[in-house]
Computed example of a mutant assay.
Amino acid sequence: MWPRIGGLRTLALGTPGELRTNLNALVLAGVKTATAGLLTEYTAEGEELEQVGERLVLVDDDDQLVGVVQITGVEVVRFADVSWDFARSEGEGDRSIEDWRSGHAAYWARLGTRVTEDTEIACLRFRLTSADEGGIGTGDLGT
């Protein structure tokens, strides 16, 4: 199971270190409004897919609150069918869907999972609902 804070599931983007710090900064700046994950990770962790309206706690390397996001869309598609619209929403600077696919395939390969065109990807869209100033610093997850 993934960690919970205040009863909410956590969202730990990328891998710890510079990547997570950069991805969190993109979310806080409103540039990153989507993220992709392997459906097999949900199965391995015994987790359900996120639901539209669900709130997640965005965390840093120390599992400390960075912000709260609310899920606005969930779609499971084959890796080959991830849309350019979705890839752009990830806000990571990819110049084309081919760049996105190449970068994500390399990332997952570094983590030990080879993706194919048929690998199922959970495509999550979200919006930032609060950050540091918005009650997170005091632990108020109700906003």
Rank of each mutant, 00 (worst) to 15 (best):
V74T: 10
L58N: 01
L49E: 12
Q51Y: 01
L65R: 10
V59Q: 06
I71T: 09
V68K: 08
D60I: 02
E48D: 14
V76Q: 09
V74S: 09
L58F: 01
V77G: 10
V57S: 05
L58H: 04
V66F: 02
E47A: 00
V76K: 12
E50D: 15
V74Y: 14
E54M: 12
Q64C: 11
L49N: 01
G53Q: 03
R78V: 02
D61T: 01
G67K: 06
V76L: 07
D63S: 01
E48A: 15
L56W: 10
V52T: 06
G53R: 00
Q64V: 14
V68Q: 09
V57Y: 08
E47N: 06
L56Y: 02
E45D: 06
G46C: 07
V69N: 04
V52W: 11
G53K: 11
V77T: 06
D62C: 14
Q64F: 14
G73M: 05
R78C: 05
R78Y: 02
V57W: 05
I71N: 02
D62M: 04
G46M: 00
V59M: 09
V59W: 04
G53D: 01
E54W: 08
D63C: 12
V76N: 07
V77R: 14
V57K: 02
V68E: 12
Q51S: 11
V76D: 12
R55V: 07
L65G: 09
R78T: 06
V57T: 10
V77C: 07
D60A: 01
G53H: 05
G53N: 01
